[in-house]
Structure formats: C-alpha cells, structure tokens
Design a protein around this nucleic acid. Structure first.
Ligand code: ZN
Ligand code: ZN
Ligand code: ZN
Ligand code: ZN
Lengths: 162, 162
DNA sequence: CTATGTAATGTTATAATGTAACACTACATG
DNA sequence: CATGTAGTGTTACATTATAACATTACATAG
C-alpha cells in the first residue's frame, strides 16, 4: 500500500523496501549510480512517507556522522532527476514517488488536517490544463498541481468528533 | 491590458493606476485599510507586472527610507488576504491580481523564456481538479496550479530566431 | 480634548531554505 | 601507475521568512 492515507506500520516496511528495490532496478536500467548516500536519503524520504524537508533529512543523516546541506540537496536533486521523488513547491518539501518507472508530474493531495499526502495521476486534469494553457496561446511544458484539503479519514473523524 | 504578455509601456501606466483604483474600492467595500505602506507595496508589485520577490520590493522601499523584511511581508500578507495579489509557490514571488473583486485561485502560466506571467481562470481546470480529488476520496478546499512553458511571443521569436 | 485600546509599523535578531566554490576521494579506464 | 570523471566533504554565504517586542497612528469613549 503506497498511499500514506492508508499505510499501516506493517505495510510501511514494505513501502520502504519496495521503493528501494524499484530505485535499484530503475537506476540500473538508466545506468546511473544509486550510491549509498543517495540510497540512504531515498530511504529516509520513504521512512517519513509524507512531505519532508531537506533539513529534517539532514538532521537524521547527522545522527550517523557528519553531513552538510549540499550533500542532502545533491542527493535530492539526483533522486528528482530520476523521478524517484517529487518536490512539493508549496511546502518546500519532498515525497517519494511510487511510480518512478513512468515519467510523470503527478498531482498532489495535501491533507491540511493530518499532513499526509497522496499522489494521483489524472489524465483529465492534465488535459484540462493543457487545453486551458493553449487557449491562452501558451505552450505548456510542465505542470504543478497541489491541492489542499481534507483526506477521507480526517473528514470522517471530523464528522464524528464535532 | 492586464496581460504582461501584451502590456506595452503606455498601457502599463494604466495597469498600475487601475489596479490601485480597484484596490481602493475593494478595501472600502471590505472595510479594511489600504494604508500608504500597503498601497505602496501593491503599486510596486504592479510596476513590475511580473513575478517579484519580497526582497526586491524591500530594496525598492529602502530607496526611500528605512524598511525591514517584516514590513514587506506584512503588506504582502494583507494584500494576499484581500485577493489583491497572488503568491507563486514555485517562484517564491508575488504578482498582482487583475480580478480581485471575485475571489478565486487562478492558474498561472509562467514563461520560462521571458519570465512573464499570465493568470487564467479556467473552469474546466478547476472542475477537473475537483473531480480528480474527490475520486480519490479527498475533499479539496484550495488548488494551486502553476504551468511552466513558453508564451506566444517567445514561441514565435524562437521559431524565427533558430 | 485627553485617555484608552487596537491596528499598523518599526526594529532587532534569528530561523529556515538553498547554493557557490573549491578540496578531496573513489573508481574506472588506458 | 597516470589520468579523468563522478561523487562527496567542507566552508562560507545567499535568499527567503518569521518571532518578539517597541513604537506609532488612529479611532472611539468619557
Ligand atoms: Zn508507508
Ligand atoms: Zn510520482
Ligand atoms: Zn503592465
Ligand atoms: Zn487572480
């Protein structure tokens, strides 16, 4: 289960290990090196399984030796370039991607109540954006969609809590 | 003409003055105070008529006396709360809104070649996002859409330049 | 008109995020 | 071994944003 809205502690070990396995395989395919540092950063990103900032990752790295900002940012840049993580612009944070094998720019559902996040890939949204931009005479190359709101489980709790 | 893709120097004085007039009127309606500082910041934002960072505005303020970051950020917060400007998350920058009277969260077309920006309000996009989110069990309250690409005039130039 | 309270701004310091520049190391290849 | 390249370490700094508290402007009540 890749969706943090649903992922339980037991599932979660699987989130991490399968993400790492996909990354290994993908990097072999692409002939790029998933070095120990890059692998470690990806592992940390998936351990959180929610948006996590560069400096939070840095602190964790520092618990096992020295580390400085450029190290983290380089690893994040690499992971992003391979599609293994996404950057959330509105949060200055990063999240693991569950479908790194097919390049995409997902849409992100950010729960304002529990801070969890889910990624969707909705053709309808992408087509609507492409059409809207072209209507304005603009040729889009890249879209960023971040949707704030309330996830299903928080909405249910909210309904019973109050 | 509010679109920076099109706005000429002559038009542009009108961009600024009409934006300020709309702001005055809107703030009177809402019974909030468009103080000299807030008005000045809004004027600077419209003078640029493209995404502008808080510290760029600060520097301009400092040319006419002292000013510190909180002053600018407070003015920007106020302007944003009244819908007079939008914040572009992917650029850490701000842009004047040409339709502050009706609340909305526009979609932004960011030209990667000339750094100009246009805002559109496309129902199709908003509906697609709303539908996509609800399909995932998510209740959206707020959407952020920033579209990178090439504006019409840059595309034409590119076609002839190369 | 003064007193009082609230909104707005000034001021200082600092937090949080991100990068430039250069040194060093690991590793492949000839 | 010599050489080149990719990756990482290290230092310093740039950029963006906010916390905390002092001061000022302005409205309204007495
Ligand atoms: Zn998980
Ligand atoms: Zn993804
Ligand atoms: Zn203009
Ligand atoms: Zn707008």
């Amino acid at each position: 289960m890749q969706d943090p809205f649903e992922c339980t502690p037991t599932d979660h070990q699987h989130c991490i290990s399968s993400a790492l396995a996909r990354a290994e395989s993908l990097c072999r395919q692409q002939q790029v090196r998933l070095t120990p540092m890059r692998r470690r950063v990806l592992e940390l990103v998936w351990q959180h399984h929610r948006p996590v900032g560069a400096y939070a990752l840095l602190e964790q790295l520092q618990q096992q030796g020295r580390a400085a900002p450029p190290t983290v940012y380089r690893a994040l840049d690499f992971l992003q370039s391979q599609g293994l993580i996404h950057r959330l612009e509105s949060l200055n944070a990063f999240i693991g991607c569950a479908q790194p094998h097919r390049p995409h720019q997902g849409q992100f559902l950010i729960c304002q109540s529990c801070q969890s996040l889910a990624e969707i890939t909705d053709d309808g949204i992408e087509r609507a954006i492409d059409a809207g931009a072209r209507t304005a005479g603009f040729t889009p190359s890249n879209q960023m969609v971040e949707i704030m709101g309330t996830c299903a489980s928080c909405r249910q709790q909210g309904a019973t809590d109050v």
